[in-house]
Design a protein around this nucleic acid. Structure first.
Length: 819
RNA sequence: GCCCGGGUGGCGGAAUGGUAGACGCGGGCGACUUAAAAUCGCCUGGCCGCUGGCCGUGCAGGUUCGAGUCCUGCCCCGGGCACCA
């Protein structure tokens, strides 16, 4: 190593990337003799440019995967493109480019950008979701779901985004103003025939996380979303004998029910309405139908409704109570009917007050006076003792729910029941650029599945781009006409396509073998699944991550996956905001691309900087301010390891003390780096490596850089550096003539003896305040420590003349003298 | 309203109940240089009567020999849910 050349990242990085490619260095194959690690990071949408957020998500995931590889695992870290979706269609309309061409060009470009990152992607496993080889299996699985009743079609009021011109799943409608997750436009309600997956069937199972290492935060978000509530279903009967079921979480207040409210859309409204009320009821129903859910589902709105003229009988006391309709009761939750207990439910209270309906108190404070209903200003809390409740009177309120359920079940009047907020997953999209739903509509046979042998149902290329607000598939002159697989007669293809969350539920299974002629390659599945570590943004907590868990379980039930869950460990990176602290978006113009940074500093520096600049789980506003620091660090690594003599000098006599110190620093840092990689604390991995380098610079002049201690330190350093700066580590490893490649070496073992301190700084406190620091032998005992502490001059100033009451000794840490 | 996450120097951040501010950015001083860059060294929470002290982790209390860390009550920022019966 004669030439003390400078670090040229561009040259080093392209050279090693070429070499790794030639060597198929990152190919991951089934190796039964080795433990596997499936590392997965959420695949990007091919928007055309890899931005800083992608790097922030992927680079630490790659470093973690590389760390696992060094720890002896056979690691698979695949990459692909979530290639269906609306932006491609928008590009088509705006620039007259076919979505396929636009998408392909973007993928080309992004592949190049991903390669520059120097990640350990196994490109043989690449998945592109808009290709028939992929979406064929979405279709195949859809058909199995259909057979199993997990996919169904129904007419329902659904959320429609007028800007995206398509329906959305409930999960894609966000916020109080109910806007579209993609474009922020407020959604509208439309009554349409749509395809759904029965996610609610799995609600209970989705609430469980059997030995999953998932962040509590994500689990909480999901539990919130699923919204389980327990109570009872109670059957009321109309005078005509019709049964009306209500769901209530407070069956104990049944005796306080003074009216019933149906959603205006409830099927029995018609039959219940008496002739004299008909015109008023019809007007209200019509008005409610016009009103959007955005308005209807807004709280703090004046509660309105009308009396139907009909009555039902309260099953527990035989009382005849009036039936109203009101738009605060929703057909989409529970049974679309409620029993109203105005004394103990704020909504019912407001309604009763407005329309002068009786309010009856059935729970009263322990020993308190019974509040008079007419004096109430708000609904009463559920605490105290039951009153006015027939057989339940006198029961403590906290036992009343259970007793009522027993009472109802014994008499066959109702039963314990569970309600969920979760809705079935609406998967139909009125868009072109998606997976065609593989069914046909036949006048004679109805909805008929496309036979497996005819899959995939291909998207036609020759469509017309007119921003009509309709899917181009619908306007295609020939595509939709086909023969019915059942009767052979004329039939029409379904022109809706699938939600792209279908693709992202399947992609990790197609990585196993993207060309498999079965949905999931069984051999690869058995070896690699489940995913060991999944990384991605928390914004997917109630969308992708719920869908993919549902999908896995549903696939298990149709026999193509096994085990309860698809992903064992989940970690979320934080969100990188723009430099203006706002969410990065093209429209705001605050999106930062890493390309320029990579040009001037190299990928390794950018990688290190992304791991260093913030806590990975928190993210924050982007700033390239500090990148110079990591660049300097890597230059210093290069300089020291390529020419240690320059720092060491030649005249110095190597000192044993310095080499002992170097070994100590090496093994202490190794311990920290190992721990921090394990727990995804990448920023402290980098600081520890910076610290060790600083120690190496400090000690180099008094070490023999040809000696064992220095060589060990360098060797360990490069193995620790390899996941962070894979190119530079490989370059230095090779220059030191170590066997190719650094990335297949073993992670070093901590030598505890070397890491141990023999002298420590003992903190001396008086009454808990820091007064002195003394250097003492590491194993010092209580007595000796106490003596040394009391001998300190600084301590003397605070202790003299006072009686020592107590001495706290924390071995290896401190002495606290209490006076 | 309910449920999460967070609040530490000028900035990003570090700290198994035990030295608050590691590491880095920025800033200052110095060395090298004709000069600049790069590089190297030192300093860098605030205050005061400055060889020594005092204060300091959103606020107010509490537990403890000792609290950024644990407990109670608040404030602020970010996110989720919300007429869900």
């Amino acid at each position: 190593m004669t030439q003390a050349d400078v670090y040229d990242p561009a040259e080093v990085e392209s050279r090693w990337q070429r070499r790794w490619d030639e060597d198929r260095h990152y190919d991951a194959d089934v190796r039964e003799d080795r433990p596997k690690h499936y590392a997965l990071t959420m695949l990007p949408y091919p928007s055309g440019d890899l931005h800083i957020g992608h790097w922030y998500a992927m680079v630490p995931s790659d470093a973690r995967a590389r760390f696992m590889r060094l720890r002896g695992y056979n690691v698979m870290f695949p990459m692909g493109f979530d290639a269906f979706g609306l932006p491609a269609e928008n590009a088509a309309i705006k620039r007259n480019l076919h979505p396929r061409d636009w998408t392909r060009a973007n993928i080309e470009r992004m592949r190049g950008q991903l390669r520059r990152m120097g990640a350990m992607f196994d490109w043989r496993r690449e998945v592109i979701t808009c290709e028939p080889a992929f979406y064929r299996w979405s279709q195949w699985i859809f058909l199995r779901f259909l057979e199993r009743g997990l996919a169904y079609r129904k007419a329902a009021p659904v959320d429609f985004c007028p800007s995206c011109n398509t329906t959305l799943a409930r999960e894609q409608v966000q916020g109080e103003d109910r806007h579209c997750e993609r474009c922020d436009t407020p959604v509208e309600k439309r009554h349409l025939e749509q395809w759904f997956f029965r996610t609610t069937e799995y609600a209970e199972e989705l609430l469980e996380y059997p030995s999953l290492d998932w962040p509590e935060r994500v689990k909480t978000l999901q539990r919130n979303w699923i919204g389980r509530s327990t109570g009872a279903q109670v059957v009321f009967r109309t005078e005509a004998g019709d049964a009306i079921e209500v769901f209530t979480t407070r069956p104990d207040t049944l005796w306080g029910a003074t009216f019933m409210v149906l959603a205006p859309e409830h099927p029995l409204v018609e039959r219940l309405t008496t002739p004299d009320r008909r015109s008023e009821v019809e007007a209200y129903v019509a008005q409610a139908a016009r009103q959007s859910d955005v308005v209807r589902e807004t709280a703090e709105r004046e509660k309105t409704g009308v009396f139907t003229g009909g009555h039902v009988v309260n099953p527990v006391n035989g009382e005849r109570i009036p039936v109203w309709i009101a738009d605060y009761v929703l057909m989409t939750y529970g049974t679309g009917a409620i029993m109203a207990v105005p004394a103990h439910d704020q909504r019912d209270f407001e309604f009763a007050r407005r329309y002068g309906i009786e309010i009856r108190v059935v729970i009263q404070d322990e020993g308190g006076e019974r509040p008079s209903a007419s004096a109430l200003e708000a609904a009463l809390p559920h605490a105290g003792t039951m009153v006015n409740s027939g057989p339940l009177s006198g029961t403590p309120a906290d036992q009343a729910v259970g007793r009522t359920v027993e009472y109802l079940e014994a008499r066959n009047l109702g039963r314990a029941a569970v309600g969920y907020r979760l809705r079935d997953w609406l998967i139909s999209r009125q868009r072109y650029w998606g997976t065609p739903i593989p069914v046909v509509h036949c006048g004679a046979c109805g909805v008929v599945p496309v036979p497996d042998a005819e899959l995939p149902v291909l998207l036609p290329d020759d469509v017309e781009w007119r921003p009509t607000g309709e899917s181009p598939l619908k306007l295609h002159p020939t595509w939709k006409h086909t023969a019915c697989p059942g009767c052979g007669g004329d039939a029409e293809r379904e022109s809706d396509t699938m939600d792209t969350f279908m693709c992202s539920s399947l992609y990790h299974l197609r990585y196993l073998n993207p060309r498999a002629e079965v949905p999931v390659d069984p051999r690869e599945y058995d070896y690699w699944m489940p995913v060991d570590t999944y990384t991605g943004g928390i914004e997917h907590a109630t969308m992708h991550l719920i869908y993919t868990r549902f999908f896995h379980k549903a696939c298990r039930d149709i026999g193509i996956t096994r085990g309860p869950e698809p992903m064992i460990q989940l970690r979320n990176q934080g969100i990188i905001l723009g430099e203006d602290s706002e969410k990065m978006s093209k429209s705001r113009g605050n999106v930062d691309a890493p390309d320029a940074l990579v040009d001037s500093y190299g990928a390794d520096t950018v990688r290190a900087y992304l791991m260093f600049f913030a806590r990975w789980d928190q993210g924050g506003p982007w700033s390239s301010q500090g990148v110079e620091g990591t660049a300097r660090w890597l230059r210093r690594v290069f300089a020291l390891l390529t020419d240690p003599g320059r720092i060491a000098g030649d005249g110095g006599t190597p000192g044993e003390g310095a080499e002992r110190e170097l070994r100590r620093a090496t093994h202490q840092v190794l311990e920290r780096v190992t721990r921090d990689f394990e727990s995804f604390e990448f920023n402290t991995v980098i600081s520890a490596l910076m610290e060790l380098l600083n120690e190496m610079y400090r000690l180099a002049p008094s070490c023999d850089t040809g000696g064992a201690a220095w060589q060990e330190c360098v060797d360990i350093y490069l193995r620790m550096l390899a996941p962070v700066a894979p190119h530079l580590a490989e370059e230095l490893w090779s220059r030191l003539e170590k066997p190719y490649s650094v990335h297949v070496q073993a992670w070093p073992e901590v030598d505890a003896a070397a890491a141990a301190e023999d002298e420590i700084t003992l903190v001396v406190q008086v009454n808990g305040k820091l007064r002195d620091r003394i250097r003492v032998p590491a194993g010092i005992d209580r007595e000796a420590a106490r003596e040394r502490a009391l001998a300190s001059e600084a301590v003397g100033r605070f202790v003299s003349g006072k009686a020592v009451r107590k001495v706290i000794f924390v071995p290896g840490r401190l002495v606290n003298i209490v006076v």
